[in-house]
Computed example of a mutant assay.
Amino acid sequence: MTEYPAEPWHLAGQAYLSVWRVPPAELPALPAGLRPVRVAGSAFVVTAWIDYQPPGQLSYHELLATVAVRGGWRPTGSITEIWVDSATSMAGGRALWGIPKDLAALDFRHGRTFTAAAGTDTEWIATAAFTRRAGAPVAPPTGFRIAQTLHGALKYSPVRARARPHFAVANWNINPDGPLGYLTGRTPLLSVCLRDFTLRFGG
Results as ranks from 00 to 15, higher is better:
L64M: 15
I146V: 15
I50F: 01
S89L: 12
L58A: 07
A87V: 05
A65S: 14
L150F: 05
W20H: 02
V67A: 09
T184W: 14
T88N: 00
W83R: 04
G203T: 06
A118G: 15
R162H: 07
E3Q: 15
W9S: 09
R109Q: 15
T120G: 04
R145S: 13
P24C: 08
G143D: 13
T47Y: 07
V46C: 03
L150Q: 15
R164A: 09
W73Y: 01
T122C: 04
R195H: 10
V138A: 02
L64A: 12
A43V: 02
L194Q: 10
A161W: 04
W97G: 11
G111N: 04
I79A: 13
A68R: 08
A32K: 10
A134Y: 10
G77T: 08
M90D: 05
W83C: 03
A129N: 09
V45A: 06
W172A: 07
G185Y: 04
S78Q: 11
L64D: 13
F44G: 06
F130L: 03
R38L: 15
G111E: 01
Q14Y: 09
A6N: 15
P179W: 03
T47Q: 05
L199C: 13
L154V: 03
E3R: 14
A29N: 00
P158N: 04
G13R: 10
A136T: 03
V45L: 10
R164C: 03
P179H: 03
L106V: 12
V22M: 09
M90N: 03
T115P: 00
D51W: 02
S18V: 05
